[in-house]
Amino acid sequence: MATAKGRTSGFVIGITAAVVVVLIALVGVVVWMNNKATDPGAAPKGSIINSDTGAITTGTGTDKVTLFVDFQCPVCKNFETAYGADLQKLAKDNKITLEYHPIAILDRLSQGTNYSSRSGGSAYCVAQSKPSSFLDYLNTLFANQPAENSTGLTDAQLVDYAKQSGADKAADCITKQTYFKYPTAQATAHQITGTPTVEVNGARLDLTKATDLAKLTAILTKNGIQPGQ
């Protein structure tokens, strides 16, 4: 009986040890999967790119306007139609510092093609290879924005628009999807849940509030621009 009991105890200990090993392995897999999901991938580098924050910057003015945009987002397109040209002009004149963060939160709306990630990554490719072409490329993407729940633009179309914007050397980067992961990681890092997200001098605005929107329009009016005109 003592021998049988010893064997039983040994069996239980063996099973327990095996379960512990399996649980440890499962925890390791979960941790690995979580790390993979939040892996930012390669970080773009360039004269107008802040690799730490993900900001693509034009202008050197004292006032800073920061925009987080998803190229699949129709509200972002509406915002750019209303304010983009004026803000970009002020940035080109160095009256403001304008930061764009291409991010991806709407991949689910492109029928499995991950258009938000691909287009956001392509914008970093252009900013890196031809900084002076970035704004033209951004404007082109919004002008040719695909409808939500469509397959989005193909990589070949993104390359074509990059070339039209003067960024021929971005083609390989776009085709290889070098920065595919970066827009999603940036959305997570900056806690972006909706687009466009706008910050003025570091303060995040609630665009549904007139008082917050006034902080943005004040930047324009102080520089002689009347919004909507």
Rank of each mutant, 00 (worst) to 15 (best):
D70C: 05
E199F: 08
G84C: 11
F11Y: 13
N35Q: 15
G6A: 15
S165W: 04
V159Q: 03
I15S: 03
E199T: 14
I24C: 08
A214Q: 15
G61P: 05
A91I: 02
V19L: 15
I48V: 15
G14S: 10
P183K: 10
M1R: 09
P196V: 00
N201W: 06
L158S: 03
K209H: 05
T221V: 13
L205K: 02
V75L: 06
D172L: 07
A171D: 05
T113E: 11
P183V: 02
V31E: 03
L67D: 12
M33L: 13
L67A: 10
C73D: 02
V198P: 07
K64M: 10
T195L: 06
T151L: 10
A104L: 08
K5T: 15
A104E: 05
G46K: 06
F180L: 14
G228I: 03
T151E: 14
A55T: 06
D212W: 05
C173T: 02
A18P: 09
Y124D: 12
H190W: 14
T178C: 03
Q191E: 13
D155W: 03
Q177A: 12
V22C: 00
K215C: 05
W32F: 14
A214V: 11
K77T: 03
L26H: 00
G121F: 09
E148R: 02
G121W: 07
A37R: 07
F134W: 06
G61K: 00
A171H: 00
T113G: 08
R7Q: 14
D212A: 09
G41A: 01
